[in-house]
Design a protein around this nucleic acid. Structure first.
Lengths: 259, 259
DNA sequence: CGACCTTTTGATTGGCGTCAAAATCTGTGG
DNA sequence: CCACAGATTTTGACGCCAATCAAAAGGTCG
């Protein structure tokens, strides 16, 4: 599995606040137009970040929260006594990054990009003060955090009580469906296929397995003609069978609206 | 590990709405007095439930959400092809139960009591409509869900990337500190000791281990004089050493206030 | 083209599961 | 208050899934 080795580069090109840009974000789906004027104060900035670079590090204070505009990312924690990495979640466009933090703005996990990505950064302080003013925003964040919680619980279930074969089938189906739902770019115009930029080592670090064992299982699934995975592209050849092995259902990634 | 076997009993004694009772709840910590009048509409009911009984079942619609007044509980999921159980979280007094649900009020996990317990039930529908009216409540729920998310992420880290010894040390420390923080009854007046009603099978089902292996590791920790676990009581004999093994820090269970 | 990722294959090891059964604890009813 | 049934803990023998170690092959990008 991946041991600690962090890349520290980030080319930031600030674009300033742009309401129409902000409105596109899943985050502000239910916030009424007249409430969006508040967002000027957030001084949102667009940031372009290269692949495999750190967004923030666990244990350090960090004054921004982000939404992912384009690209893939991860949040993860590191076991300090042996350097092993646990990926907590794969981030896709529209996802919120780094909302949870303690009183000193310290985040308990790290975040990094997988592909080159575009982030939208918000001041945490201003974001928090906005929560008071806009119940819609608070509820919207709550909806998103509930979705993240479900992902985390299913992930825990896979890691704790499923075999390598079952849990690998599970994240493949989960990521496939999340991409189909959240991303609508040229990468996924094929019918049963998505761009799949994560490595087998990433998959192992998400599921508590080694890249070597992930490789053996992935090849087994390919020999059985359930999937085809090659050159950063995943094709689901037998969605029904794979879902059965995984005990995956698309309802698992449907969010809920609270208001 | 525990395979599916559910007890279905619940002696409900409704007490009706009681504002002073509601105010005591962690849930309403920051909600101003004048906003609490809304809560009359929630028609909160107190329910006394015996040990080891089901509160709700995964996959079924359920119209109430709860706070745990007294006692211990769990939320869990079941792998349907083999009946294995994954405990997602141990519930302690003050915890919110069953907030996440889909559009049809279906909850993705089950909940059960460990000890005999007192719950406070709220109508989900009325609770949701209250979210609109009271930003304080929405933010308070958000704070609680962020805390739950942290617990889930640490739990995933333990299950995915820690050894049995490390992850068992971890949940012992986590539960010990959570009880010390959340519970202030006669059960925990001893200095390094708490009432600890869960079985070794429960611990295994939380960490993806068998009760047999949990037993071997627990006895190893006892031989090393790090803990003493007997008759549903846990004593931490060497908190420093145990925390090191677990990579546990009390900051992990400190929540944050957003407003 | 060369350095570094990432994937792949093989051999071996070990942590934890499985199976089986005894010992101990706990709660309940007579 | 004791007796008994079921739950929980404990012990031992054995097996297997996935880790580890090692190294080659294939990809990717500056």
């Amino acid at each position: 599995m991946m041991k600690i080795n962090s890349v520290e580069k980030s080319s930031t090109s600030n674009v300033g606040c742009n309401i129409s840009l902000i409105q596109e974000q899943a985050l502000f789906k239910n916030v009424p137009q007249n409430r969006l004027s508040w967002l000027k104060d957030l001084q949102a900035k667009q940031i372009k970040v290269p692949a495999r670079s750190t967004i923030f590090k666990e244990g350090k204070p960090h004054d921004y929260i982000y939404t992912l505009f384009s690209g893939w990312g991860i949040i993860y924690k590191t076991v300090s006594n042996n350097g092993k990495r646990q990926i907590l979640r794969f981030l896709l466009p529209g996802d919120l990054i780094g909302f949870q933090a303690d009183k000193a703005n310290v985040i308990a996990y790290s975040s990094a990009t997988v592909t080159s990505s575009v982030l939208c950064a918000f001041s945490r302080k201003k974001f928090h003060s906005l929560l008071k003013e806009s119940p819609e925003l608070a509820v919207r964040i709550l909806e998103m955090e509930c979705m993240s919680m479900s992902l985390c619980q299913n992930h825990l279930m896979a890691t704790g009580r499923k075999t390598a074969r079952e849990s690998i089938a599970f994240i493949l189906m989960e990521l496939y469906c999340r991409v189909k739902k959240q991303v609508s770019d040229s990468f996924c115009e094929d019918n049963n296929s998505i761009a799949f930029p994560i490595t087998q080592e990433d998959m192992g670090d998400a599921l508590g397995l080694t890249n070597i064992h992930v490789n053996r299982v992935v090849n087994e699934l390919m020999r059985e003609k359930l999937i085809y995975l090659n050159k950063k592209r995943l094709t689901i050849l037998n969605e029904k069978k794979l879902s059965e092995i995984a005990e995956f259902s698309p309802t698992m990634i449907e969010g809920n609206t609270l208001i």
